[in-house]
Design a protein around this nucleic acid. Sequence first.
RNA 1: GCCCACAUAGCUCAGCAGGUAGAGCACGUUCUUGGUAAGAACGGGGUCACCAGUUCGAAUCUGGUUGUGGGCUCCA
Length: 584
Amino acid sequence: MPRSKKDNVEDIAGLRERMRHSASHVMAEGVCALFPDAKLAIGPSTEEGFYYDFDLPRPLTPDDLAAIESKMKDTIAKNLPFVFEEINRETAKQMFSHQPYKLELIDDIQDEKLGTYRHGSFVDLCIGPHVSSTGEIKAFKLLSIAGAYWRGDEKRPMLQRIYGTAFETQEALDEHVRRMEEAARRDHRRLGRELDLFSVHEDAGAGLIYWHPKGGRIRTIVEDFWKKEHYNAGYELVYTPHLGKASLWETSGHLGFYRELMYSPMEVDEQSYYVKPMNCPFHIMIYKTDIRSYRELPLRLAELGTVYRYERAGVLHGLLRVRGFTQDDAHIFCRPDQVEDEIIRVLELTFLMLGAFGFKEYEIYLSTRPEKYVGETSEWDRATEALRKAIEKWHLEYNVDEGGGAFYGPKIDIKIRDALGRSWQCTTVQIDFNMPERFDLTFAGEDGREHRPYMIHRALLGSLERFLGVLIEHYGGAFPTWLAPVQAVVIPIADRHQEYAQRVQDELKKDGIRVEVDARSERMNLKIREAQLQKVPYMLVVGDKEVASSAVSVRKRNGENMGAVELQAFREMIKRAAQSRSLE
RNA sequence: GCCCACAUAGCUCAGCAGGUAGAGCACGUUCUUGGUAAGAACGGGGUCACCAGUUCGAAUCUGGUUGUGGGCUCCA
């Protein structure tokens, strides 16, 4: 009977998992051969490959990786069987008496029976599964060395982790390596420099972004789009300060639970002011300027609010992890009976916004009440149900992270998948039972009495910095026409075509097209090459023929040469591409 | 913050074992006016990240600081 494709996919996933797990054992054996005193920690398979953590007498070098790989090849060539054996606790303790990390693991296992896997003379505490023999590890590669805390706890010893990956065929491994290289080519830090989008300055502070004119263009377009859609969706845009007095942050509770992420205060007229790490208290200030009636809720206050948070030096990463960033923030104040509807609307706006950038695949996570929480359980249940129903209203699959909510309320997180299949967290929608209480927010109900509003925090793109970083990688720098900082470059072939080139530019500018003329006295070939490297969507070559016929010769960045197109026809074409937000 | 590595011209990198710096690209000038991914020549440009130390002498060795990269932890 022919197997379904689905079975096949699961087979390969399972095979890879076993093969990688087995490869980690073989690697551990190789490390032990080179370092007889090596202390072994854990070595699982991962989505992309495998790793093993070791406590070693000296730091590893890339040369060590080559030596380990060569040992591994020997073991694989011997095609040793993986043999499972169940042993009792005492035997295990004896067997691993020189392996303190293994002993700790043994102590944590509840079962009296423990599993071991052996190949050749190497035994590891392990429940598998593995491939049946080392020869079944068809293609592998060790990739990198990194530090990792024992059990992920920064108070515990720092171990050395070796990352590697394995595949069922050499071709599949090569393909994986090719994808990693593609990811490196798309790295937003590299493209940010090559396309002159942004910079970061050692002399001016780590994790603080400078948007150059071209990056600024893109950001402005995204922001304008965002503002327009938020007005359409019933939000009001507000602007709030960057500083707030200590008392505000005491009321909000941030000085209590968020202090490590806040910068030191500055003294103004003998008062302490803090730079804001969040926008919510400021929006609350606006809410509190009036007595709110149930009739005017929901009140949706949105702001592209720039916040500053202290992030530890080691975590900073290009645009994706910074110390100053602009959240596409909003706070929705609503009646309890409006929550579900509001969440539905938030999700609708989310999919509209993300969809416009070409993100159509989402992973949705619903996080529920943690052990430590504020507020009433009945309120939590009600709010969590509202989140769940909103997700289901859109017929979406989702994962539940039980107990993964913030202490102040349940939340929905959405991850998007980019062109390389990597996922990124952007959207977060959180209900907050804490702030309304702390700031004593109220509204006058239909019954004339005071009620507590619900408060929803939400950021759809997350932060402009991170989102643009993701966009750069998603498009590989080749922004669709509506986002491209330069949409077209006019390339005169010789100096006598400059005047016409200028006319072409003037004509296109009437439609707001971002068009430049490459007026340098360079050869056309060079100008095409550079426009191509800058990933400009349209190159408009103009020479004698085009001047004579009021046309432009259109070359697209995908290499397609459209030949001569009448100027007015091209004007319509690019206008349509830009206005329709086509993803080309 | 922690582990490891790295820091040389605007960019990408050489510079072997300490004797005061090189290439390509970019930039400037000149020549070239060329039909779909690099025309040519000449030229300018670096207190070798910063601060100490060792040394007759440090880009090169040692320590510290700052920053960057790969991870860990944390997160928009």
